[in-house]
Nucleic acid binder design. Structure first.
Lengths: 310, 310
DNA sequence: CCGGATGATCGAAAGATTCGATGACGCCCC
DNA sequence: GGGGCGTCATCGAATCTTTCGATCATCCGG
């Protein structure tokens, strides 16, 4: 049985596929050109296939099968590096750079406490935070540009592993002088005739608000000319205070003091399932998946007091 | 930078994880016990983690992280072998064992011609055929026990790559003396009041028949005591001939002569989308994916004459 | 307390990898 | 058209790694 291609050979092939030049690829691999050339030749001999088209001048031209092998080689090398990464992560858990993504309707209310808590608990961790819409942070997650995403479920998180953290109720925010403000709790049917202020497209909270409203048959999306769409929860609250409409806010935002001293009141919504689930998502093959599970208990809404240490 | 673990080391680790015995693992790897022992030690030293618990007697006990690393090692070794397999497949396309799965409502009508055609076209291919329900063949496909599946879409084929081959119309088969037999084509609304004979649960054709019938509002699934459910298309045709009900048959089956000389007539269905798409499915990472695409043109219904060779 | 089984360790031989130097080949410009 | 240049292949020597067989250390059951 011929030996499997070595990690070194795969590195050579991938560098050559990227740079299309033996000398520069060798430089990138920190070896001499002769070594890289011999490595590619050895790979061709071992696999018994032609990876490069050598007749066309002296330019580096991959054969179709060469491209295919290079693509598989990338995957194999990645898998090998993951073995190493798993070992590294276990030897030094909760260290190194953690690139965390978060959506705008969670970030401002969770991150401040989270960052300081993580720094206190895990001094060797370095945090990089990226706030963006659900779709964007999830894209970056699967592309490997983020390690961990804090988001609101339900959401389309194919190809990721998720862990629910806590339930975050939606609460109705309305102008203080609004007739409904007299009620202690407001049933979803009463919202049917009201104008709702929405976040702009792409915010999952927008879709979740619409989903809650659509549980009431009488409700329909406002015409585009009548629509009130804003880009941040802060603006949204301001507009409610101005009497321009009602809005659903996550309890998380309310309890973080987003209402300030504006002339608005906040009421629970009854008669429907009005909440989102805050959760974590990561790549299932992430070497640090075990770390992320350990990290989860430290991600909390600011209002929840820490459980006593044991 | 410490070197990545070698394929050999991963093999040693996996053999040890499987056999839990240095001597036998070494035998399985065709090396001496000392070599395997040294290999494991070297891996532990390179990764700088403890893979085995050595204090407990002399039994081979993996640490939790050892198990984790072994699992990743399996994946990495698999990826390396795939590089090799891609090369092998390209060097000798259309050779070796091809394990093909097929569903019962396609197999009898396509396989006979397909097998002889493939043997003629690719003499070095060895075929292994497995006929089973859609769910079962797809399970075997993703588990790697099949290479290629011939099935009817739409279907839930997550985690697989699919290639549509041709559209297969559904045709209504009814007793020769049935009043509707007088019509040249039968609109789906006329089926609303008829009793349909169905395949048993698990056949995708059953679900597709129900889907067609449900396009007609008046239609509802028969009560279980009134249901006529059979296990094969041949029985189904027999029951139609006996006047027990109507059935939808794929054109593929009709043109393969399943109606024999029974007192039934077959009519096109109008007024709805009544067809299935015959297609191929395989694992996206299959080393022979390129082969499968080349193979597709040779999979045809028996009625279609071969295009002239060019 | 001893013999068998199991895994770790050691030195030597075989094999693989790498380097620097050099060869072969096409291309460009004078 | 020929020399210079850029590019990839080849070669021998030095170095590093892997493997083997032998041996040692330890544990377990009688």
């Amino acid at each position: 049985m011929t030996p499997l291609p070595s990690a070194q050979q795969l590195r050579y092939l991938i560098a050559l596929a990227d740079l299309r030049h033996f000398g520069r690829a060798a430089q990138a691999c920190a070896v001499t050109q002769s070594t890289l050339s011999a490595g590619i030749l050895a790979l061709e001999r071992q696999l018994d296939i032609q990876l490069l088209d050598r007749k066309v001048g002296k330019r580096v031209v991959f054969t179709p099968i060469g491209d295919e092998v290079a693509a598989r080689a990338r995957h194999a090398l990645d898998a090998l590096q993951t073995v190493q990464a798993v070992a590294d992560a276990s030897r030094a858990p909760m260290t190194g750079l953690l690139r965390i993504g978060v959506i705008p309707t969670i970030g401002p209310f969770v991150l401040p406490g989270l960052v300081s808590r993580l720094h206190a608990q895990f001094p060797h961790i370095r945090l990089s935070v990226n706030e963006d819409l659900t779709g964007n942070v999830m894209d970056k997650l699967v592309l490997g540009r983020l390690d961990l995403v804090l988001l609101a479920m339900p959401c389309a998180c194919e190809g990721t592993e998720t862990l629910p953290l806590w339930r975050d109720d939606f609460m109705l925010v309305l102008p203080a002088r609004h007739p409904l403000a007299a009620l202690e709790a407001i049933s979803v049917e009463r919202i049917g005739t009201e104008r709702m202020i929405l976040l702009e497209d792409g915010h999952c909270l927008r879709d979740q608000t619409l989903a809650v409203c659509r549980q009431e048959r009488g409700w329909s999306t406002p015409d585009s000319e009548e629509e009130f769409v804003v880009t941040s929860l802060y603006t949204l609250v301001d507009m409610v205070a101005d009497g321009l409409g009602l809005a659903l806010l996550p309890r998380l935002a309310v309890e973080s003091g987003i209402l300030r001293d504006l002339p608005v009141v906040v009421r629970p919504v009854t008669g429907c399932q009005a909440w989102r689930t805050i959760g974590l998502a990561w790549r299932p093959r992430s070497p640090r998946a075990a770390d992320f599970r350990l990290l989860a208990p430290h991600i909390r809404p600011p209002s929840v007091t820490a459980p006593p240490a044991d």
